[in-house]
Structure formats: structure tokens, C-alpha cells
Design a protein around this nucleic acid. Structure first.
Lengths: 337, 337
DNA sequence: TTGAAAGCGGTACCAG
DNA sequence: CTGGTACCGCTTTCAA
């Protein structure tokens, strides 16, 4: 491995001078700089970021910890955060938890071990208490989901409002028996979405049929099973999650049900195929790009500010989702089934 | 920041003993271990991986450099590589290039600066020559695409065969004017796919209409524009890429064309929505999971073996895609238009 | 403008 | 089994 020492020997200078010449750290004669750069290029020198971080007591890495990188929701965040890091010469560290509390803890430990300059986490269910101690060690923010045990910055969506709006849309069309596929309470988003659903009924003075709220992990399989067995009086379905929408759409497409002929459908997410599924899906569209950009901005701004603000206030920011009405929702009176 | 020294003072032991007690590096009395662990936990000690990497002259990080993490193709690879790293206590470093040669170079430099134990790259178009010097510094493999300038390990698909099969399928149905949306020659996959397309015509003794080969960057927008203006004698379309398929499907869905009534369609990729698009898309399905698992396995196996094999041979492995015939291809005689 | 030297936080060797 | 110590590569005083 080529080190600064090798360049020093090669050029007959001291390591200190070489270091100054390479970075813009200290003074160095232009001639010296030129000579050093040339030697560095010739030898294929690449500075060790570990050594630098160690000496500087701060790394140039930023971490993102997500449940599932194949979920478009999170890969979009990764894309935006990676670009933001790039623009500032920071490295981007990605970790995947699969919503396993132990893996989540382990990944956060890895982030701290790497002494990341900042880290963002989409917390899973049943977050472990030890996370707290790890979260406070660098600028930290929770994304989308929110663990009550972590009193930290948070960027997410107004999930309750999103579901309320979607549910009201269906109620206003005349639906009275709506099946809700939703993530379970232990995912913070699941709780909020269920609340929004119930709230819509309450506002209309209607009673929710609790049997029609079907919860589980936010996976394609849950979406599929949620619509596997639909009571005959159900006239509409809300799939309140990206993966749940995929699973439900998959099962419904295979079942041969006509949409909205037999049943109305409201999905969730940003997938492009939504726009042509049965002529265009009615769906809840969370502004993921805003969220990602704002949280990345915020997190990176926090870097290096530790202590400058004596006790920076906890930032909590939520974005409103948009209900995009398409062709998959219709009054139940016009259902043919 | 809590260091080993702090724990040493806290327990009245030496840093050396503490280090041994924490890792499984050297001997230490069980009682000592217990005491040290307790103090470490109490103080919230997390070892600095930078310091360890530095001393050990090897890091525990593995890198993946992809053009676009929101492409399901690559996020699937990221998922599998991240899991493989996890299982071995390695950290996973992700970088995104956006198919920009300069960013690609910069990202690879960052990987080398971090002294990653191994790195996998999906090379973009016009890879810069400097990559070579960076690639040889650690176990390295190219994925999917392949830059001719980099004589390194490669894991990819038999793109030529995949396209040949798809094209023959259409020719055998009786199609003679097939529009091909494909990535450009400077993406290695683009060249191979075009070659397969032409080869199919050649085998049937038919002439390709070069005007019907439409190339560009592998983006949704390219897919859209490729089918924006379809000559009237065209009876079938092949979209030879994940993003191209998305773009073409989008444009076709909006155009109101009936499929396969007006025109037959062959797509590419693994998206779930393919299986219900117009009753199930005929598509080329590359075995991404095999590729990802095999390449991760291979790459991680290389770690630490440098020099053990005097000159390990270059490994080149390609996987055959599967042509999954659905409802979107049909004989042109039965077209209603 | 340059050089000498200390030190970041672990690890590993060697002596006890 | 434990302690002392040198050292990984880079940065940053401080002195020349």
C-alpha cells in the first residue's frame, strides 16, 4: 500500500510537507505541490480515510439504516441521500435491517463503530432500548416511522391525515364496508394509519367494523393474504402501504375480480405501474422526494454543529400525502357484482 | 469518546488486557472478561473500526457501486450482498454513479480510500481508464455490464441468448417488423442484446430493419420515446431493459393501444406488475438472485486470499435468462388493427 | 516554507 | 494470564 511516507522518500521531502501539499491544509510552494502530486499519481497513492478519520476525530461517512432496500420507498431515500453526500464529499454507508430488532441494533452499532458523522434510521417494530445510547452519539434522525422510545429528530408523513382522506373519499362515494390492509400497530405508521381510518368513520358518525382491519408485517405476502378472503358485503379495499398494495394488487389481479366493477380499490405509494393498473389506481401518494431531500439537508447541516447549539431542539417534521383519485374507485351502487 | 484506555483505567487493567478480553484475540481469565465487558457496557464503549482497520491493515467493509439504486435490478443485488456481508460481520458500503464516468471514478476512489476488503461494480458507459489501477487493489468483480478495458472477474447474464430467444419467439409467431428498444452500444449489455436480436433474424434468414432498433440510455424516458412514434408496419415491440420496459409500458398504456390486439409486446425484468400487465407480460427474466448470490459468495471468498493463489484466474460467469411467455404476444395475423 | 515529533485507538509481540 | 510498548497512516502543532 502506497503511503505518504513513500511519496516523501520518492520526492526527498518530509511526510509533513507531503501531507500539506496534497491537501489544502497548510502552506506549500506551488513547485512542491506539483512535484508531490506528480509522484502521488505516479505511485497510485490514495489516502487512507481510516487514518484521516482517526487523526481528525471525525469521519466523512454518513449512514442510512432501512428495513428493505428493494422497497422503492427506501431506495428513493437512499438515492437522494447518496447524492447529497456525494455533493459534499461524504461517503454513504447503507445498512439493511429486514425489520429485525437485533439486526437493527447491530447495524446501528456498526455505524457508531465506523464513527459516522451522522445517521438516519427507519426504525422497525420493537426497537431495542439500547438504540438510545447509540442514537445520541452523532446527529441522528428517524425517518418515516418513529419509535416512541427515541426522542430524536423525525421526518415523516402525516399518515393519519392520508388515511382519513382516503377513507372519507370512499365513504363519500357511499361505501360502508371497507377492508383495510395495514401494517400492525407495532410499526408506528401502522398505528397512525389505522387511526386515520377510524377517524374518518367517526367524523361521518359511522361505526367501523373492526373485523375488516387486517394487519401484519408490511410485506407483499401480507397484502396478498389480506385480500385472500373478502366478506361478501365488502365493497372497497384500502391497501395502506407500498408492499401491501403490491400484494393486494397481485392477488386481486389473479382472482379475476373486476375493479372497480366488483370492488373499489385504494392503494399507496409511488410505483409507476399504479398509474396504469385498471386504468389508473386511486392512491395515497406520500411526497417521498421532499421527505428525503429535507431530511438529508437537515441531517447534513447538523454535522459539525454538535455543541454549537447548546441543546438543539428536537425537529419533527411531517409531510402531507396527496390523494390521487384514479379509475379504481367508484360508488358501490354502480358495482355490477 | 470512550476508548479502551478508559476501560483500562476503570477496571485497573492494562489496555492490552482489555483488548484481549473484549475480542477473542488472546488469553484472558473468564473473571477478567466479565469485569471488562461489564465496564465496557456501562461506559457505552464501541470499538473504533478505523483504528482496528489501520492496525490490522485490512478493513471489514465491502463495497458495491451501482448506477441507480432505485432500479430493482440493483437494489436486489444490494439486498443480497448486504445480507451476505451481515452474515460475516462485514460492513456494506454503497455508492451510486448515475452512469456518470467521473462519479464512477470518484466512487471507486472512495472505496479504495476506505480500504474496502472487496468491491463489486456495475460499470457505466465510457469507463475511465484510471479505474484499472483502482480495481486491482482488492478483490474486484464487475456485475452485469462489463467494461472491456477492465480484465477482471465478471458475473452477468447471457444477454445475447436472451434477446435471441425473445426475437425468435416473435419471428416464429410470424412477426416480421419488430421494434427494439435497447440500451446503446456503449453499455456492454446494449451491444450484446442488439447482437442477439440481429442473430435471431440471421438464423431465420431474414433481414433486420435497422431503423427499428432504437437505442439510448437505460432510462424510463428512453423507453417512452422509443415507442412514441411507431411505424404502421410494426407488429411487435421488444423492450430490452428494466427501465425501458417501464417507460414503454407507460407510454403504451397511455396511448390506448390494445395489447396484444394492436401490437405484441416483450418486456424485460422481474417486476411483479409484469405478471398482471395486460394479463401477464411476455418477458425476458434474468436470474438476478442467482447472480447476486453467486457473485457475493465469490467476492467474499476472495477476501483474504490475495496472493494465496499466485495468480487467480479471471472468473467469468454468465447466467441464462428465461423467456416467460405470457399474454402480450400473439401471431400478427390475429391482430385486430 | 519545511521538518521533527506526537498522537488518534486499537492490536500484537514479547517479556514477565 | 497480564503489562509494556511499538506501530498502523495521517494530521497538526511547534521550531527551525
Amino acid at each position: 500500500m502506497v503511503t505518504i511516507k513513500d511519496i516523501a522518500e520518492e520526492t526527498g521531502l518530509s511526510p509533513a510537507t507531503v501531507a500539506r501539499a496534497l491537501g489544502d491544509n497548510g502552506p506549500a510552494r506551488p513547485e512542491t505541490r506539483r512535484k508531490v502530486r506528480e509522484a502521488a499519481d505516479r505511485l497510485g497513492y490514495v489516502a487512507s480515510s481510516a487514518a484521516r478519520s482517526m487523526r481528525r476525530q471525525s469521519s466523512n461517512m454518513v449512514g442510512l439504516v432501512v428495513p428493505d432496500i428493494t422497497n422503492r420507498f427506501y431506495s428513493e431515500m437512499a438515492r437522494i441521500m447518496a447524492a447529497a453526500c456525494d455533493a459534499r464529499g461524504l461517503h454513504f454507508l447503507l445498512a439493511v435491517t429486514d425489520d429485525d430488532p437485533n439486526r437493527e441494533l447491530q447495524q446501528m452499532r456498526a455505524m457508531v463503530a465506523a464513527r459516522v458523522a451522522a445517521v438516519a434510521l427507519v426504525p422497525g417494530p420493537d426497537t431495542r432500548l439500547e438504540l438510545n445510547a447509540l442514537a445520541i452519539r452523532q446527529p441522528f434522525t428517524q425517518l418515516v416511522r418513529r419509535s416512541r422510545e427515541l426522542p430524536t429528530d423525525w421526518f415523516g408523513f402525516d399518515e393519519e391525515e392520508g388515511l382519513r382522506q382516503a377513507t372519507e373519499h370512499l365513504l363519500d362515494l357511499g361505501h360502508r364496508h371497507i377492508l383495510l390492509a395495514c401494517s400492525a400497530d407495532r410499526y408506528s405508521t401502522g398505528g397512525a394509519r389505522q387511526k386515520g381510518f377510524r377517524e374518518a368513520y367517526a367524523r361521518r358518525g359511522l361505526a367501523v367494523d373492526a373485523d375488516l382491519i387486517r394487519t401484519g408485517a408490511p410485506l407483499v405476502s401480507s397484502g396478498r393474504s389480506a385480500v385472500a378472503d373478502i366478506p361478501s358485503h365488502v365493497t372497497a379495499i384500502i391497501a395502506a402501504g407500498t408492499m401491501l398494495t403490491e400484494g393486494a394488487a397481485d392477488a386481486l389481479s389473479r382472482s379475476g375480480r373486476r375493479i372497480p366493477g366488483d370492488i373499489s380499490f385504494v392503494g399507496f405509494g409511488l410505483e409507476r405501474w399504479h398509474t396504469w393498473w385498471h386504468g389508473g389506481m386511486t392512491r395515497i401518494v406520500p411526497p417521498v422526494d421532499f421527505l428525503a431531500a429535507a431530511s438529508a439537508e437537515h441531517l447534513l447541516a447538523r454535522i459539525g454543529q454538535i455543541g454549537s447549539d447548546p441543546l438543539p431542539e428536537v425537529v419533527e417534521k411531517s409531510y402531507r400525502s396527496n390523494l390521487s383519485v384514479g379509475q379504481t374507485t367508484r360508488s358501490p351502487a354502480s358495482h355490477t357484482g
